[in-house]
Design a protein around this nucleic acid. Structure first.
Lengths: 151, 151
DNA sequence: TATTGTTATACTCTATAACTATA
DNA sequence: TATAGTTATAGAGTATAACAATA
């Protein structure tokens, strides 16, 4: 780790994220899920009736790219669609979906705990807040650049 | 940000990483580079003669996937190949590559500084160490799981 | 007009297997 | 036997444009 990249927060974020994602996907694979599927199940558990456009905005996934995700979960009988109005469909976990979601929550909780346990003890308390701060800071730079283009 | 995912370090890593990557790619686009190209230029500046297999191991990119990256940069006259032995080729920045690398370093440094400046002041000192720790912790879980499969 | 769900499409990134030449 | 570079290919993930139906 003596390369010129190892001190760059952006690079470290990317590498840490990729490593964590690989670990999480490995844990979710036995349930036949990818991390994005698991995210959607968690959202629908906490916020039943969320539409797929709303979920896409939460997860920063384009409407168009939500279609195969929702179809896949619906095809497995994990979620149902319920018309909200003529164009929107609220998504809900089926009982099968709730059962699988419980397993997902166990896996994710175990993984996140293991991840935090791997940190030096004196970082554990502040670690999540640091990640939130990085997210916020990176988003802020993007919003800034975007408004700079348009205005 | 009141969804059930916002407290999960793995999720936060992914979102922060994606946001930071988007910002960095936006800054590198005028130079005609992607973040991975920039990473390779930085490596070759600091460690001239690195082979593409070595660079791939550093960046966690498969040998096979290094080929189009190196070809692209060589095609633009940014890097040269010099035979080390019959099978390995050391990669070196051309003078054009060094010049572009200097611009890359400016852009990246400016971006990383802006990112850190967006953090609450009391986090700035420890922030990079926290990311390093997450990377290490996530990698450790992957190594553990891998040896568990094989052994 | 703006939004939802959808289709089609293209591009990037990543993963795997196999081949040749070399060590 | 292991490694370097390469080719081909398949799978994810992501981005954009366009359309019909609806608000």
């Amino acid at each position: 780790m003596s390369d010129p990249l190892s001190t760059l927060p952006g690079y470290l974020l990317r590498r840490a994220s990729a490593a964590a994602l690989a670990g999480l996907n490995r844990r979710l694979a036995p349930l036949g899920l990818r991390h994005v599927d698991a995210s959607l199940l968690l959202i629908l558990h906490s916020m039943p009736g969320t539409t797929q456009s709303e979920a896409g905005r939460l997860l920063d996934i384009q409407r168009a790219n939500m279609v195969p995700i929702v179809s896949r979960l619906e095809g497995r009988g994990l979620i149902d669609r319920q018309k909200v109005d003529g164009r929107s469909q609220g998504l809900h976990l089926s009982s099968k979906g709730e059962a699988l979601c419980a397993e997902v929550r166990e896996e994710i909780e175990a993984y996140e705990l293991a991840l935090l346990a791997g940190l030096p003890e004196d970082m554990r308390e502040s670690a999540v807040a640091v990640l939130e701060a990085f997210w916020r800071a990176a988003e802020a730079l993007n919003v800034e650049a975007l408004s700079g283009e348009e205005g």
